[in-house]
Amino acid sequence: MPPFDVHEFAATTHGSLRAELPDVGVFDAGSAELVETLRRSEAATMAHLRNVLVTPTHKDARVTAFLVSWAFEKFWIADALNAISSGGPSVAGAHLASSRTPGPLRRSVAGAFSGTAVVAAHMTQGLIDDTILDAAYDELAGRVDGLRPLTERIRAVKSRHTRFFAEEAERRLAASARSVRVTRRVLHRESQPIGSGTWTNAQRAGFAEAVFGSGRGAERAEHVAQTIAALPGVGADAARRLVDRNIRNLLRRS
């Protein structure tokens, strides 16, 4: 497969999905909560960019070119999710409210010392985030059949992001032991999906339960673990610990 073409990606970004919104009416509380969690995750681009751009990742013009279009596509995904959760399109402000996360100061100091190795960590985080959210869209389509065309569309839009993150993470981790060390440290420190560190414990547990708690949940969690374990140098143990901490340990014990 040829390497990801950032120019081509930028030239073919998907904008507003409002014309494709299904009329699904009111759906159950659990599904509504899942839509809201997905909306919040997709809308957190500026908070995430803030954390990423204060590190040496901002120097990589190819990565930043990708992130500009990535943020644009996620903006419109969040907009669509906002529209279906609130029964109609609303002000842009509602879907980009970012949470108060600690720290550009700490991150910029840490980033200054970890150098370009931190780019691998950010690419890996992007891949894991996409893998977890993809499982959530799969769950949502199973719960509300009327949403399936929209979730399929969103998953297709996001599949290009996933491909970029996977390719970049693999290449960078394979090329540098320092990148592996920095990535393992970041993965150990920060929660997944991206931004979930600012959720309440109940929100995190609710999301884990909804997506990974029943039905195909165990299989999905295993897929996340395998995706991480397949990355050069990360290792099956670190992958398992990450999935335990962010998913399995949050599930209600039966």
Binding site: T45, F75, A92, G93, L96, A97, S98, R100
Partner: peptide, 8 residues
Amino acid sequence: HRDPDVGA
């Protein structure tokens, strides 16, 4: 960045 209009 916390202002949603600014983010959009």
